[in-house]
Nucleic acid binder design. Structure first.
Lengths: 336, 336
DNA sequence: CTGAAAGCGCTTACAG
DNA sequence: CTGAAAGCGCTTACAG
């Protein structure tokens, strides 16, 4: 950077004051004579001076920035969450920096987001390992977890949704209203907590209606269209019998639609289908998808506010569980 | 952070070496005795030491991080671009930090992403003002612009797409194949360069076929579903006559669909409709949308590689214009 | 191969 | 209200 940027010393010199004074007018951290302050301000303007954030961070140990760690950013699921986080961050007066874990180069142990460049972190499921989470906890760095309980029962706050009761309700709808008895459940990715809870809800619903759990009806859909489609095709090939599919989430439900359609099974006449999330596209599918609405945008917003409270040193609830809601459309057999 | 993190001095002390040596094994910047290095490495492991990036940045003036500046992140349009950027960044061995302009708190002149925490910046249309762009250029900071020419004819590289010829081709298709004569054009947001070029293409197509340009057929769709819908409804109310709509982009095309449907106009029988981008949903609309495919993911990927070359001090082309392609489906009147 | 020391650009007690 | 100076945690010539 040859012409290079001006430093606080350049400003101080031009204004004929010490760098301490420049720092004070910059941050409003101590009273400065009006006239002096004016001189400093015009020096700043004349030089087009912008403070060097890394230096500021190093000296002050504050960044006014919140970090968001996600596995990926391009999934439709993350859109509402990002919207909520952006809104929350803006309301709370912070800056937002986002990093997606998926884009990490292999075996590069760098930490693009952490205590060195943020005041606190929002961490979505699977995007930080237990070791790093423990390290952050140990040094007292503020973290809020999204859709994931803390490892080793660390006391890290969590914002998540009512997965279990949502799942239970939708499966019970399938059983009670549509008389389904052999209901497939498609699990999410390995170790994904949302999936674990939804499976519990699924099992509870079966149990509540005296249906026995059949392991051959459970398989991995990975919350992913293509994987769910492949799994469904395999079950069809294997001749597994079923009259409904609870796809785990809406993305997987789309894969189920594709597989069933290709196999000539009608939805909902031959097979009822249900999703989870109520993503934007759910209502535009044919038939419109019956699903569970997850307040994903609110999760993002609430997580930011919770973190903001932590940053102020205030007390914060250790666990926020946002309610989900049944959305009955047509894929279960009801009429829109 | 009371228990606080260990520093390089702690590691040095524990390993019985100087901090310079620790730095060397950390960065592999100079040969270190195997045994010494081993001692240092175990000290690092024992203390769970992680270098403080702000300090490292301040001292070394490198971050190994690329910044991406976007107006927003939750639009469907940005998904492929983000995917491309993530892939490119990962291939090039950098970290990625994303900031959305939209989330900036009002009148807070902070710079969440800049020369202090990144080695270079990818800047999408409208997300950085001319003044800041000029400042970055002046200090020699590497920047690549996306879908936007540099202000004040600064020599900043650009990656964009063939907007004009794409637009011209699709409008000519409407004229030549479907005999449309009164074609509405919906402009993008104020000052949006993609829109300017697409409008030029639209006008060229009219001109090439001897159709006169009618200002009453041009209105703002803002590349936005709801705004396009409202605009379309107003035109319908005003009794403007037209036999086709080139919506500016696919999002706006959805708004056009909604407005036309509500007014009882059939697509394509009464009105032909065309979009731009070929977003994921374009093929699933009813009728399937005729549009122009924009290589948005490739734009993201190429921009990263261009920036990476800049960072190595290599020469880079000042302007990369990726080709677009006509995608004929049903909304123009062709049969799928 | 290794260390002492200067320096990166700021903030913040401490004096005055 | 203002300045001199220490310090934030690193990297990197410079010596040896």
């Amino acid at each position: 950077m040859p012409p290079s940027r001006p430093t606080i010393a350049d400003v101080a010199q031009r204004a004929g004051v010490s760098i301490a004074t420049v720092s004070r007018v910059l941050n409003g951290t101590a009273p400065v004579d009006t006239e002096t302050a004016e001189r400093v301000r015009s020096a700043i303007a004349a030089l087009n001076y912008v403070p060097h954030a890394a230096a500021r961070t190093l000296a002050s140990r504050r960044t006014d920035t919140i970090g968001l760690l996600l596995p990926e950013i391009s999934g439709a699921f993350f859109q509402p969450m990002l919207r909520g986080v952006e809104a929350g961050v803006s309301e709370a007066g912070f800056d937002l920096l986002i990093h997606t874990t998926q884009s990490r180069p292999e075996n590069a142990p760098r930490r693009p987001l952490g205590e060195h460049n943020t005041d606190g972190l929002l961490v979505f499921t699977e995007s930080l390992d237990a070791k790093e989470l423990t390290r952050l906890y140990t040094i007292g760095f503020p973290v809020v977890l999204l859709h994931q309980a803390p490892p080793n029962s660390l006391n890290i706050p969590v914002v998540t949704i009512e997965n279990q009761s949502g799942a239970q309700k939708i499966v019970e709808h399938l059983i009670e209203v549509h008389n389904c008895h052999r209901i497939v459940f498609l699990q999410g990715p390995e170790g994904h907590e949302d999936s674990t809870w939804r499976e519990k809800g699924y099992r509870l619903a079966l149990k509540a209606h005296g249906l026995t759990f059949d392991p051959s009806l459970v398989a991995r859909g990975a919350f992913n269209r293509d994987e769910a489609r492949a799994t469904m095709e395999q079950m069809l090939l294997d001749g597994v019998e079923f009259d409904a599919v609870f796809a785990g989430d809406d993305d997987a439900a789309v894969g189920v639609y594709l597989a069933l359609r290709q196999a000539g099974r009608r939805i909902p006449e031959d097979v009822a289908v249900a999703g989870f999330d109520d993503q934007v596209f759910a209502s535009t599918l044919t038939p419109a998808l019956t699903t569970v609405r997850a307040p994903t945008e609110q999760v993002g917003r609430d997580a930011v506010h919770l973190l903001a409270r932590l940053l102020k040193g205030e007390q914060a609830e250790p666990r926020l569980v946002l309610p989900t809601e049944l959305v009955i459309r047509e894929s279960c057999g009801c009429r829109g």
